[in-house]
Design a protein around this nucleic acid. Structure first.
Lengths: 135, 135
DNA sequence: CTTGACCTTCCAGTAACTGGAAGCCTTATA
DNA sequence: TATAAGGCTTCCAGTTACTGGAAGGTCAAG
């Protein structure tokens, strides 16, 4: 397989695959005489693993750790679980932060009449978070 | 006020303030004879506005738009509202994506015994999302 | 007059790629 | 066989929103 095909099959762009090689997430690919990268089924499996892990929000560095654990048949599942739990904690922090933003904003949006008049509680809040009559 | 003080009072680092100036989010600050930037209360208000908007997740470009609307006394509140609503839609998309990741991961984590044994449903899922007996 | 804190500019680095340029390789078709 | 299309190569730049650090000027206090 050339890089284009393995990219299509794994769901990772050719650009990204070259990038992963350049940073050492995956080893250097075999090359044809003319310099084209070639990939086998094993490489495809690895790329699919990476794609799936990335789609679950693991950073490239975390994926690197997951790949190492995947390859290590003596791994302890506790290590994998811990990595995943840390990641879930990160995700939860992000969700919490975003929900706070959304709640504040939706509250402001509700109070903005949103017509041709210039007065707007959203801007007022941004200009000075502690509005006089609020709360 | 020097940049350090206005930074402390606005909650934006001196580095970030210089950066905002460099990209044109804020105008060039007045300077002392020796070249130090100086800021007045008006600048402080602007920086606080920026800080607050950034903390609500608006991008710098969106903040630029909000600042323009804030300064424009002929603005229509509908414009502000639309900007905010778009932003909330972005946030909601992010939250939804993160919740999907979290749900998948917590499900996998529950099924991983997390001890010294190597077998691990998390890695199995990453290796091939469609496990044989699952679902 | 010398610290130490503060300020200046400029360069590099972060995360994880994507886009694009310039140029070779392969394959199909006229 | 010429050539055009599409795929491949490397390398550089750009993205977002800054932060860190180096080298050096300034200011207030002791």
């Amino acid at each position: 397989m050339n890089i284009g095909e393995v990219g299509r099959r794994s769901g990772i762009s050719a650009k990204a695959i070259r990038y992963y090689e350049s940073i050492g997430l995956i080893g250097p690919a075999d090359r044809t005489e003319s310099g084209y990268r070639t990939y086998g089924d094993h490489d495809l499996q690895t790329l699919r693993f990476i794609q799936r892990a990335r789609s679950l929000g693991f950073s490239v560095e975390e994926v690197s750790g997951l790949l190492a654990l995947w390859r290590d048949t003596d791994r302890q599942s506790a290590q994998v679980k811990a990595l995943a739990q840390n990641h879930v904690a990160d995700i939860d922090r992000k969700i919490t932060g975003l929900q706070g933003m959304r709640d504040t904003l939706t509250h402001l949006i509700e109070r903005c009449h949103g017509d041709e008049r210039p007065d707007c509680p959203i801007l007022e809040d941004l200009a000075g978070a502690a509005g006089p009559g609020s709360r």
